[in-house]
């Protein structure tokens, strides 16, 4: 018996020491470590910062949207609760700034018209082939759920946007690639999209790279998870309900079982 237990302890000890060292040797495939940022929307009670999302939309609109589509989002979403919460009118104006393909008209031709709130965000390219052709063969991915589609989410996007550096001397860059400390493999086709002053901020926020990256990361997080605030809010209510319910059920269970315990004590005392 003793020997058996010692053997198992030994096996466990060996596996416990062996696994972490194996893990550290393996990290290359998982990409560089991403630093966690502080976000206003952290659970369990977080909310999006409306002004930040509005700035983030601006960065998206003037920078990202030149190459990246965002096919799951509509202009109406910009006005809905829990998001940037532009006014209905402002969202309609933002929609109208985009020329949307529609049709066919009575003569069978497609035509361009100003966007409406119900339109999806205008995509910069008609199809993937056009996108590749315009970007040296690389396809700029759709950004709708990007913040859920990469490990680290908004932290990763922020790290990526602020991660452009000179390539270290020992790294040979492929043609048309750019060195990025956060990107897995460090060679990314997208050139550094942000530079100080490329987007104008009107709310007094400093228009620097750090703020651009942070704001657009928050915006993409909202775009990927537009019901996040509703989820937290409902969650808080349901959790309180369940906790109280659990206490009541526990008391009820004790009350019911007390009869049995009482009988047992009587039986014991009699014995």
């Amino acid at each position: 018996m003793r020997n058996v237990s010692k053997l198992f302890a030994a096996i466990l000890a060996v596996s416990a020491t062996a696994l972490p060292s194996a893990a550290s040797a393996e990290d290359a495939g998982h990409g560089p470590a991403i630093e966690a940022q502080e976000w206003s929307f952290a659970p369990p009670f977080g909310q999006f910062d409306r002004a930040q999302l509005q700035r983030g939309y601006k960065v998206y609109q003037f920078v990202c949207a030149n190459c990246h589509s965002m096919n799951l989002l509509s202009y109406r979403n910009l006005a809905q609760p829990g998001g940037p919460q532009f006014s209905e009118k402002a969202a309609a104006t933002l929609a109208a700034q985009a020329q949307i393909a529609d049709g066919p008209d009575d003569t069978g031709k497609m035509f361009q018209r100003p966007g409406r709130p119900s339109d999806r965000f205008r995509a910069p390219y008609a199809n993937d082939q056009a996108a590749r052709a315009a970007n040296g063969g690389a396809l700029p991915p759709d950004l709708s759920v990007m913040a859920k589609a990469r490990p680290g989410g908004p932290d990763y996007i922020y790290a990526l946007l602020t991660g452009y550096e000179e390539a270290p001397a020992d790294v040979t860059m492929s043609k048309g690639m750019h060195y990025n400390s956060a990107f897995p493999g460090h060679q990314i086709a997208m050139p550094n999209p942000l530079a100080e002053g490329v987007v104008e901020y009107t709310d007094g926020t400093e228009p620097n790279l750090n703020n651009y990256a942070k704001d657009v990361s928050a915006f993409l997080m909202w775009a990927a998870e537009p019901t996040l605030e509703a989820r937290y809010r409902l969650g808080a209510r349901i959790m309180i309900f369940l906790l109280v319910f659990a206490v009541i059920m526990y008391l009820a269970k004790k009350a019911v079982w007390a009869r049995v315990h009482k009988r047992d004590h009587a039986a014991k005392n009699a014995a």
Binding site: P43, P44, G235, I238, M239, L242, F245, A246, M249
Partner: peptide, 14 residues
């Protein structure tokens, strides 16, 4: 009910 609490934490927060 207790199980639902665990379920709820994952569902609403992660």
């Amino acid at each position: 009910v207790v199980f639902c609490i665990v379920f709820g934490v994952l569902l609403f927060y992660a």
